[in-house]
Amino acid sequence: MELFSEYFKKDNLFSRIDARVKLLAALTLLVMVLSYKGFAFPLLMALLCLFFCIKMRIPSRVFILRFSEPLFIAAVVLLLKFFFSGEDVLFSMNIMGARIAGHKDGLMDGLQIASRMLGAVSVVAVLGFSTPFTEFMAGLSWLRVPRGFIEILMFAYRYIFVLFEDAMVIYNAQKNRLGYSNVRRGLSSFGVLAGSLTLKAFEQSQNVTVSMVQRGYDGNMPALKHKPFRASEIVFSTLFLIVMGVAWSI
């Protein structure tokens, strides 16, 4: 839960930029990273985003947690492609009679995928680190994402933290009573945990509806309002994207 930007959000240059501008810029950069043939541009993006994260003073623990999984998967995809894909043999060795070969074309493919992952994860990480959830919702609403979807997102985000606390209380109570002492008991306890959470979700939804109706809820949440765009943000982000576009085309 500490990965959510609300837990470490600081007032900085990036958090002050309009969420719509950040969202559009991030989506454009994501398309550039995914469509690039090679690994120079995605790595450039990764480095740039690393710099942005340092400027935003993202706690190192959060940063490591956020990147550890994609980095690990990128490394293994690289190895998978190097050893099990391609035809141009770079070297080969025998392990207990089986021939294992590293391929040059596999290595290049693997590097491309790994760098693409790194670049794409970095772009989305900067977006996530710098944008509070409510502003992100306003951005999605401006992009004409259906209102029903945004309302569900808002309900879900609000109750993740509530239900997570409930889940941890149930989990710790089960653990203290040796609910996970062996596989059979663990399976049974986890089923009860999932069922209890579902029950809580049902009950909570009824209570929430009653309290919202008392406050005038008619089945639709109030529309999210947008501030006007700032000219400086538009100019700066357009220039930034043009520079990135030039780097992409080289």
Binding site: G148, E151, I152, L153, M154, F155, A156, Y157, R158, Y159, I160, V162, L163, F164, A167, A194, L197, T198, A201, F202, Q204, S205, Q206, V208, T209, M212, V213, Y217, D218, G219
Partner: peptide, 24 residues
């Protein structure tokens, strides 16, 4: 979702809460 929430006001909160359960 739109169809069901028109007849039951608690349906959208329920779907949101179930999304939170799936997330957790």
């Amino acid at each position: 979702l739109k169809k069901l929430s028109n007849t039951d006001l608690s349906f959208k909160p329920l779907v949101g809460l179930m999304a939170a359960v799936v997330f957790i």
